[in-house]
Amino acid sequence: MKIRWRLSPGRKPFKSLYLHIILWFLGRSIQAAVHIDPKIRQEFFNLPDDMTFSLGVEPQGPRMVIRKSTQTGVSYLGRASRKTPADLEIKIHDIEGAMLLLTFRESTAISASHGRISIVGNVAHGCTIVRILDQLEILLLPKCIAKRAVKRYSTPDRIGAMRTRLYVRTLIGY
């Protein structure tokens, strides 16, 4: 019988890189979308001030943190340290689950019902964040992809203009 004593954890460099990029992009686009989409603005209005929330892969994977504050509005804080937990954390349990969710092959609802994500913190705020993410996906993605990511797709008014502004603001970080 052969015995091998240890096996160091492997790497998934491409998936990891993709997730870093997409989370960076989502973080910055949430920050920008507040200025562009009234629905997202309204949802943020309902959240308490100085609240932070994170979306990331557990336990040590890529993630993004967003803060809503009265002074600076909604701001993207990058990866931020895990030592101080966010007020609300949307945790994706593994990297494959994150790929399914963030390549928009699986909607947030399906991921939640398959137990791939869990929400730690105030569930009502979690529901608001999920609505924000759904609306963001509608704004960012072409209809055929966004339809897989949300349960009900409704085309917002002047989506073309909004989408262009959103991409420009996201990329220049404004």
């Binding site: 015995i3 091998r4 004593w5 240890r6 096996l7 160091s8 954890p9 492997g10 790497r11 998934k12 990891s16 892969v57 557990e58 336990p59 040590q60 994977g61 593994d94 990297i95 494959e96």
Partner: peptide, 14 residues
């Protein structure tokens, strides 16, 4: 082994 990439669990003995 690849599944452990974000948890950094060292597997073994095998």
């Amino acid at each position: 082994k690849a599944a452990c990439c974000t948890s950094q669990i060292v597997l073994g003995p095998i």
